[in-house]
Amino acid sequence: MKNLLLIAAFCIACYSCGSGNKTLNSNNTEISKNDTIRIANDSLEYEIIIIEPGFESWLVSQPPRGFYGQSLLENKNYQWVTEYNTRVLQPAKYSPSLYTEQINYDPAIDYGYEVNYLLYNYFVYFQDKYNQKFIGGRN
């Protein structure tokens, strides 16, 4: 299965940022609510899981799905993933508790709108919540 993007990176990053208060059962099904968003495209075998308290309530206050075109989301995501990965490789300059693992995002793969929308919004949330500024800003 081609696990995408931040399954590990965001989970570890979010967990290390204080969101490790979740309890998972043996099937890795979330017991706690409102702290996890999972978007999966089983036909493409990609998924994104974001474990971050407050992200879901913040997400509903953002522009709705369809507001941004998929190509804009893909371009921003590729740009921000590249910068995020650069920061992972510079632990003396950027906090290793925020930038834990590199993200595997291939611009040649069509992850679909939902995955790109969610990843884009997580990067916006991440920048706002942790006072991080990525090249290109929000839009």
Rank of each mutant, 00 (worst) to 15 (best):
F126K: 02
Q90R: 12
V88T: 04
T36C: 10
M1H: 14
L118H: 05
Y125I: 02
F55W: 05
K93T: 12
S26H: 15
A40H: 13
P63Q: 04
R65P: 05
S26R: 15
P63D: 03
Y105T: 00
P107K: 08
C17A: 12
S32P: 01
V81K: 00
S32K: 11
S71G: 06
T82K: 10
L44C: 08
I37S: 01
G66M: 06
L5A: 07
G66N: 07
L73R: 01
Y130A: 03
N34F: 13
A13E: 05
E45N: 14
F123E: 01
S16P: 07
A9C: 08
S57P: 03
N121R: 04
N75P: 00
E101L: 15
I135Q: 14
T36Q: 07
P53A: 04
Q90V: 02
Y113I: 05
L4F: 10
M1W: 11
K2W: 12
G69Q: 12
A92K: 15
Y46V: 05
E47W: 06
G66F: 08
T86C: 05
Y68M: 06
Y105W: 10
I39C: 09
Q79A: 07
G18A: 03
N34I: 07
E47H: 11
D128R: 09
S26M: 15
S19F: 15
N41Y: 05
P64D: 07
Q62F: 05
Y68V: 02
I49C: 09
I12E: 14
P91R: 06
N21F: 07
N21D: 11
P53Y: 08
N139M: 09
C17D: 05
P96C: 02
E47T: 05
Y68H: 13
E52V: 04
C17I: 04
L44I: 06
I37F: 06
M1N: 12
N85G: 08
V60F: 12
F134V: 01
Y130H: 13
S19T: 14
S97H: 11
Y99N: 00
I103C: 02
L44W: 06
L119T: 05
D106Y: 09
Q90A: 12
T36E: 07
Y15R: 11
R65E: 13
C11D: 11
V88S: 07
E45S: 13
I51E: 10
E56V: 12
I109V: 13
E114W: 05
F134Y: 10
E101Q: 15
G112N: 08
Y125A: 03
F67D: 08
L5W: 04
G66T: 03
A13N: 09
L119G: 03
A92L: 15
S95G: 07
L4K: 06
L6W: 09
Q70F: 04
A92F: 15
S32N: 12
L73V: 00
Y15M: 09
E56G: 08
Y120D: 02
